[in-house]
Each structure stands twice: as structure tokens, then as C-alpha cells.
């Protein structure tokens, strides 16, 4: 699964970006460059799909792909997919649930959702069985706190909660292929056993540790997307993620800029207020344009310019700023071009 995703990403980049761009998307780096890249190259759904991925791991995998003749390094030092690589990807892509990945909208909640759910199942299962002493599988303080208070509000009708949870999980897992439902359940911990580790799951299903890391995230995203989209069908599960799904994912600083923008301040005014460079505020605007579906760029760039830039980008079939700018006789700034590209890709947001 991991090599396929890597091949696919290399293909999407069209030799316009380096391997770092892919690494940054996979680990979910919070930078406007990464936000822009993932939309420009249709990799947005893989944002943050493997947050613990090491730079060296991705490098090792690329070496393997090179040895297999699936990719090569071109004269500019950029990776390029070969014919064999492309056909290999095409043949195997559908064997894995790549379409489960939800990207950035789930970034802030996916790990929390699964940690809360697994810890609550462990807690409820043990206590309902009369075992009040057990070692929690999670040591994140916020997750522990959340489960504690969730348990406190439901402890008077624990049986009911267990019934509902069991019913909802059963229904939602039936929509998965059997093997995936198995993996999700094997990862759970209850009164009688502790869940399987990633390493154990990988061995059991003949996958690598990287495959299983990706797969668990994919399954988690699919679970989340079902729960969020059908919150009335899964009211109990929805409670485990409710507080996280409404946020527009922004960096802390980007959020502050958005606050001033919404109050009607101009870029220059915000630059002064926040004692930041103009280019930083411009980066924030790009970030907001990518993440916030309600954000309009018309305040910052005339209608005419939007038309020009978007037409040129479409004609050239590229997202390279330099090419676009040159082809427009350098009438527009890089910032203006980036802003238009960002607002264009918004339509692709899931």
C-alpha cells in the first residue's frame, strides 16, 4: 500500500516538486506551501495520512522503487515514474482502500476519535464486567480526561450505552469488507484481552508496518466520514468526534489573521497590527483560501485578473507559478497567482 501511494504521488507531481513535498503532505505539515501543493496536484486526501513517517523511510522506499524500475531520477534530479511504474500502479491501485482517505478535514480529529473510542471501549467493557482496575491503553492526558468525563455522564446507564455502541459499530462495520472489519475489531481492547499492536496486525495480514499504519488511518477516516455524514444514524459514535469536525483547519497564526480579516481589516493594516511581514500575512491568506469554503478572494484581487490567471493556468496545464507569470507578461504578482490557484482548487475539497 505504501509503495503504491508513493508511486501515485510521484506521478501526480509531474516532476514539478521534490520528494520533500510528498513527505510534507503525508506527515501533514502545516505550511502554506504544503496546503497549496496538495490541492494543486490532487493529493489533498492524503494530507496527514502517515504522521510518523520518517524522511529516511520514504527515501528507502524510493530506492526500492528505483531498483524495481518503477521510477527514475531525471536530469533535474526530480523523480519520474516509468511506464512499468505507471502500469503497476494502475493494476494494483484498486486493491487498497485509497478512496477512504479524507485528508485535511479529518486531520485535527482522526487520532483523537480513534483514541477516545478505543479507550472508552476498554473502560466500559472492563467496568461492566466488574473490573475497575486495568491499565489504560492510552496515556494522552486530554484523551484520558475526555473519556473520564464521558464515562461519568453515562455511567448510570452503562448497559444501554454498550448496547447502542455495539449496535452502531456492528452496522457501520458491515459496510466494510470483512477483512477491514476484522482489523478494526482486532485493534480493540476489552475486559478479556488487549488489542493487537500494529506489528502484530502487519504480520497477521502479510503487510509491512508502513502499510498497516496507512491502512489504519484509511479505515479510521472512512469510519469518521460515515459517522460525520450520518450523524443521526450513528448518534453515539458521533459524540466521540463532534467537537472536532466543525473547525476549519488553520495554523494558529493563520487563525489570528483570519480573525482580523473577518473584522474587515486590510492586509497592510493586519501587517501593522501583528508586527509581521507582509509575505507572512499573504501566506495566511492562501492558507485560508484553501481551507475555508466560505472565504471570498474578491476583496483582494479584481474579477478580471482572476479570469486571466485561471485561463492561463488551464491552458498551460501547470501549477508552476513562474510559467504562468511569464506567460501573462508578468502583469500579476506571485501572490495574486497563488491566491487564484488556491481558490480554484477549493472546488476539489471533499
Amino acid at each position: 500500500m505504501f509503495p503504491l501511494l508513493l508511486l501515485h504521488s510521484i506521478q501526480q507531481l509531474q516532476e514539478e516538486r521534490t520528494l520533500s513535498a510528498i513527505h510534507h503532505i503525508f506527515i501533514g505539515k502545516k505550511s502554506s506551501q504544503t496546503f497549496q501543493d496538495m490541492h494543486a496536484y490532487q493529493l489533498a486526501s492524503f494530507y496527514g495520512c502517515y504522521r510518523t513517517l520518517k524522511r529516511s523511510t520514504i527515501q528507502e522506499e524510493v530506492e526500492r522503487l528505483k531498483r524495481n524500475g518503477y521510477v527514475f531520477e531525471n536530469d533535474e534530479g526530480r523523480l519520474q515514474i516509468t511506464q512499468e511504474g505507471a502500469s503497476y500502479t494502475q493494476r494494483h491501485w484498486h486493491h487498497y482502500p485509497f478512496d477512504y482517505f479524507g485528508g485535511k478535514p479529518y486531520h485535527s480529529i482522526d487520532e483523537v476519535f480513534s483514541a477516545r473510542l478505543l479507550l472508552f471501549i476498554q473502560t466500559a467493557s472492563n467496568i461492566a464486567k466488574g473490573q475497575r482496575q486495568f491499565i489504560p491503553i492510552e496515556d494522552n492526558r486530554h484523551v484520558l480526561q475526555w473519556v473520564k468525563s464521558f464515562y461519568a455522564t453515562h455511567q448510570h446507564d452503562l448497559t444501554n450505552v454498550l448496547n447502542t455502541l455495539s449496535d452502531e459499530l456492528y452496522r457501520i462495520l458491515c459496510s466494510f469488507p470483512t477483512e477491514y472489519a476484522e482489523i478494526i475489531v482486532l485493534r480493540m481492547t476489552g475486559f478479556h484481552r488487549y488489542g493487537l499492536s500494529k506489528e502484530q496486525l502487519a504480520t497477521k495480514y502479510g503487510l509491512t508496518i508502513h502499510d498497516i499504519s496507512l491502512l489504519l488511518t484509511a479505515l479510521n477516516h472512512y469510519l469518521l466520514s460515515n459517522v460525520v455524514k450520518q450523524s443521526t444514524t450513528y448518534p453515539m459514535l458521533y459524540q466521540f468526534c463532534r467537537d472536532g469536525v466543525r473547525d476549519i483547519p488553520l495554523t494558529k497564526s493563520g487563525r489570528q489573521t483570519r480573525y482580523w480579516l473577518l473584522k474587515g481589516y486590510s492586509i497592510d493594516q493586519i501587517t501593522n497590527i501583528r508586527h509581521l511581514k507582509r509575505s507572512t500575512i499573504e501566506d495566511h491568506l492562501i492558507e485560508i483560501a484553501l481551507a475555508d469554503p466560505t472565504f471570498s478572494i474578491s476583496r483582494f484581487i479584481p474579477e478580471e485578473a482572476v479570469k486571466h490567471i485561471s485561463q492561463t493556468a488551464n491552458q498551460l496545464k501547470t501549477n508552476k507559478l513562474k510559467k504562468i507569470r511569464e506567460s501573462l507578461d508578468e502583469d500579476y504578482s506571485y501572490f495574486q497567482i497563488r491566491l487564484v490557484l488556491a481558490s480554484l482548487t477549493k472546488g476539489n475539497l471533499k
Partner: peptide, 13 residues
């Protein structure tokens, strides 16, 4: 082993 049974066991159904 099947996941349906295991889920029921985990959640004491």
C-alpha cells in the same frame, strides 16, 4: 473467530 462475535464479546452483548 469472527469479528461479529468478538465485537459482541467486547461490548458484553
Amino acid at each position: 473467530w469472527n469479528w461479529e462475535q468478538e465485537l459482541r464479546k467486547l461490548l458484553l452483548q
